[in-house]
Amino acid sequence: MGNLYDYFSAPDDATALAAFDQGIEATGLPLLPVKEIDPYVQLGQAEGMLTGTPYDDVTSLPRFNRLLSSPEDDSRWLVTLTDELRDALVAARPGAFAAVAETWSNIEEFGGCFPPGELADVLIGLSDLAEAARTRPEPHRLYCLMSL
């Protein structure tokens, strides 16, 4: 069993933290469960590819993987994702995900374990989540609940 990552949207950090405590499914917030694609290194590199921003600059953004849950938790954490990622996922043109996934699949952290088609599907799922987040009456931000 690997690490699990639940990517979801919420209107604000307080609501995301409440969903972390209650269980995302119980809150009815939009959710995309993903196995083995972490929000920091792996998704952070995809963010850099989607936005044209160097990875080191992506990691400097204020909402990049900011921990909302207690640092003492040893098996579950809640982090923020950037609005830049959300907006880039929404703005991507058809075909962009396949091209990004081709490059993304070759990063060292994947170790050749993810075919580009699977990664493109993850990006499409995240794009759908981001689109729903931006078009709500009260726009949502993106979050990731990580579980060991």
Rank of each mutant, 00 (worst) to 15 (best):
G2E: 08
M146L: 08
S127Q: 13
E102Y: 09
P54D: 14
T59G: 04
G28V: 01
L119R: 11
A132R: 13
W104Q: 04
Q42H: 06
F64Q: 12
D38V: 06
Q22S: 12
L17R: 13
P94L: 14
C144I: 01
A19N: 12
A14R: 09
D83E: 15
T51K: 02
A26C: 07
L29R: 02
F97K: 01
R66S: 12
E102C: 05
L81V: 03
L31K: 05
L61P: 03
W104E: 03
G44W: 03
L129Q: 12
P115N: 13
D87V: 06
S105E: 14
F20D: 07
E36Y: 15
T27H: 02
R66T: 07
N106K: 13
S9L: 02
G111M: 07
L85F: 00
R93H: 13
L17E: 14
R76F: 15
L17C: 10
A14T: 15
M49E: 04
R93P: 00
Y143P: 02
A101E: 02
T82L: 03
I107M: 11
T135V: 06
V79P: 00
V41W: 08
D56G: 05
P11F: 02
E108V: 15
E84K: 09
T135I: 07
M49P: 08
F8P: 06
Y143Q: 11
G117H: 15
D38C: 07
A26H: 11
T80R: 02
A133K: 02
R134K: 12
T15A: 10
P62F: 05
T103R: 12
E108W: 12
N3W: 15
P116H: 13
D13W: 01
L126M: 13
S69W: 12
D12T: 08
L29H: 03
W104P: 00
A19C: 10
L31H: 07
V100W: 01
A10H: 01
V100S: 05
E138P: 02
V100K: 01
E72W: 05
L148Q: 06
L148M: 09
F8I: 03
V79D: 03
A98I: 04
S60K: 15
A99W: 00
G111E: 13
D21L: 02
L129T: 05
P62R: 07
S69E: 12
R66H: 14
Q42W: 00
I24L: 04
D83V: 09
G52T: 06
A98R: 08
E47N: 10
R86V: 00
S69D: 11
L89F: 13
L142T: 04
R76T: 14
P139M: 06
L129I: 08
G95A: 08
N3A: 07
P30G: 12
P139V: 06
T15N: 07
G95E: 05
R134A: 15
T82K: 03
L142R: 04
R134L: 14
T51H: 00
V100R: 02
E131C: 15
R63T: 10
Y5G: 05
L123E: 09
G2V: 15
A133I: 03
S9A: 14
E72V: 10
T80Y: 00
G28P: 00
C144R: 02
V79I: 04
A91F: 06
E47F: 00
L119I: 11
L32E: 11
E102K: 14
D56W: 11
E118A: 09
F110V: 06
Y55G: 08
F114T: 03
D121C: 04
L4C: 09
G111S: 05
A91M: 10
E118D: 13
P115H: 15
E109W: 08
A10R: 01
S9K: 06
